[in-house]
Design a protein around this nucleic acid. Structure first.
Length: 485
RNA sequence: GGCGCGUUCGUCUAGCGGCCUAGGACAUCGCCCUCUCAAGGCGGAGAUCAUGGGUUCAAAUCCCAUACGCGCCA
């Protein structure tokens, strides 16, 4: 393949970037990067009613957050330039009109004056007669006079493409192989709406050709549209790109993943504390795999190993549990300062500031192997920064046990002047403390943890004490003992 | 309704005619480690390869039907 690789993601800005769109973007991006090609972003905003600027912004933000970049396409709503003209379809209307005109002149397309009501009636009749409900081609052969009369009546025309009556259209798909469609079962589809705007299928073809796409990688739901598009390429005398239709992403109930399955927007995952690299890694494995079933990939590995070969034909169910596991893997690999940086929006949201307490990095590091989500970070370190609060288990099961109060007071006494106040030394000291009193370590360790953190679960005890520092340890031991009356 | 696509452990998947008494990962269970919770290590359970027919000495792998699921068009 000596051809220059050019792929694209072409979202309609009618909402946020969802998981399915993110996966499509990722595959296009990976494919382009793998083959040292060009990745393009194009905004298909021909649905004037539902398209919004906010959606455009959200989509761009989502793609950027996931760590993907585009070589051509809009930088935001206003900065939209590139070697192929604007990347918003509504700014390319003239181009579409040019080819509509051409197809009209060549008789490959024709105006259709049928109203919504006409089409609705047609559909119902067909259904009654158990025929496939499709356009019957009644405007195919109108004479010029008929057209003039209809227009004189104020009828607005849409433009339809004349599909061949016979033969088959074969879609050569890089994932599924050749897929054939009978032309006579396809209908004369609309390429220009009565409003004058292009339809999806038409604008898509014109742009993919003009932007010199080499590969169109998109969701399976577009496979059925492809024969129509292929006929358009043919009618316009253009060489079509190569197609690859990705299997869909399903919700747990087996239907196409959608809002009712819970979080579907990429930005929601960001807010839930997922790392973009983890989401990317997980999404890559939804419909793609290597022969060795490798699970974790560095960004470089992903680009190096990704190709259409490993793409799956069957749909995949989105599994948040596995995504969460993977996120934990990535979190654990992050150097602590970086972890703190990534967690800082969540720490701030929880109102945690290191005033007085230990350094944030030291505190966060204690629980490094425990985080699965960035949102869990504040909850696991906040005992350092908030007034003591006891869980019922810590209070009732551990602290209220007989003799605990005295143990705490004795500990405070033993640690009052103990130095150095460090992990190893503290462990040695407290083990000796146990031995001297004939106490089992558990009888001391557990109350000590509960009294200083308010919890029965937490970081490794002695390092935690070191990080907490003598002052806070002593004051908490005394405070807790005092509460045990 | 028509057309299209799909079907391997609960989930993501490996597999492209003999290496499969079907491999890996998540989840799950047990054990070890251990100051708790995790992480980690080890091990277990879990798939009549949707069903039924062929083809072949040999099929998860090739062919044909059927079923189910999903998508597109309306």
């Amino acid at each position: 393949m000596t051809q220059k690789i050019r792929t694209r993601f072409a979202p309609s800005p009618t909402g946020f970037l969802h998981i399915g769109g993110a996966r499509t973007t990722l595959f296009n991006w990976l494919f382009a990067r793998h083959h040292k090609g060009t990745f393009i972003l194009r905004i298909e905003d021909t649905d004037e009613v539902r398209s919004t600027q906010d959606s455009v912004s959200a989509i761009l933000e989502s793609i950027r957050w996931m760590g993907m970049d585009w070589d051509e396409g809009p930088l935001d709503n206003d900065r939209d330039q590139g070697p192929y003209g604007p990347y918003f379809q509504m700014k390319r209307l003239e181009l579409y009109q040019k080819y509509i005109k051409q197809l009209l002149q060549e008789g490959k397309a024709y105006p259709c004056y049928c109203s919504k009501e006409d089409l609705e009636a047609m559909r119902r009749l067909a259904q009654l007669e158990k025929r496939p409900p499709r356009y019957d081609g009644r405007c195919r052969n109108l004479t010029d006079k008929q057209k003039r009369d209809l227009e004189a009546q104020g009828k607005k025309a849409s433009i339809r493409f004349r599909m061949p009556d016979e033969g088959v259209t074969v879609v050569p798909d890089m994932i599924r192989g050749d897929v054939s469609f009978e032309n006579k079962l396809q209908q004369d589809f609309v390429i220009q709406k009565t409003t004058g705007g292009p339809t999806y299928n038409f604008a898509c073809v014109v742009d993919d050709h003009h932007m010199e796409m080499s590969h169109v990688i998109r969701g399976d739901e577009h496979l059925s549209n492809t024969p129509s598009q292929l006929q358009l390429y043919r009618a316009l005398g253009w060489e079509p790109p190569k197609f690859a239709h990705l299997s869909m992403i399903l919700g747990p109930d087996g239907s196409k993943l959608s809002k009712r399955h819970g979080a579907t927007s990429v930005l929601e995952y960001k807010n839930q504390g997922f790392l973009p690299e983890a989401l990317r890694n997980y999404l890559a494995l939804l419909g793609w795999s290597t022969t060795d079933s490798q699970q974790l990939f560095t960004p470089e590995e992903l680009i190096a190993r990704f190709d259409l070969e490993g793409c799956q034909k069957s749909p995949a169910t989105f599994d948040p549990v596995k995504l969460t596991w993977m996120n934990g893997e990535y979190l654990r690999k992050l150097p602590v300062p970086e972890l703190v940086r990534r967690a800082s929006p969540f720490l701030e949201a929880a109102g945690l500031k290191p005033n007085g307490g230990p350094q944030l990095e030291r505190a966060v590091a204690l629980e490094h192997e425990k985080y699965k989500l960035l949102t869990e970070v504040p909850g696991l370190v906040d005992f350092f920064y908030k007034p003591l609060q006891f869980t019922p288990k810590a209070m009732d099961k551990v602290l209220r046990a007989p003799g605990v109060k005295q143990v705490l007071l004795d500990l405070a006494e033993a640690l009052k002047d103990f130095a150095p106040f460090t992990d190893k030394a503290l462990e040695e000291c407290i083990r000796k403390f146990c031995a001297e009193r004939g106490l089992k370590t558990g009888q001391v360790f557990h109350p000590l943890r509960a009294a200083t953190t308010g919890r029965t679960e937490g970081p490794t005890l002695f390092l935690m004490l070191e990080v907490m520092g003598r002052d806070m340890v002593l004051s908490r031991l005394r405070e807790t003992a005092a509460r045990l009356n």
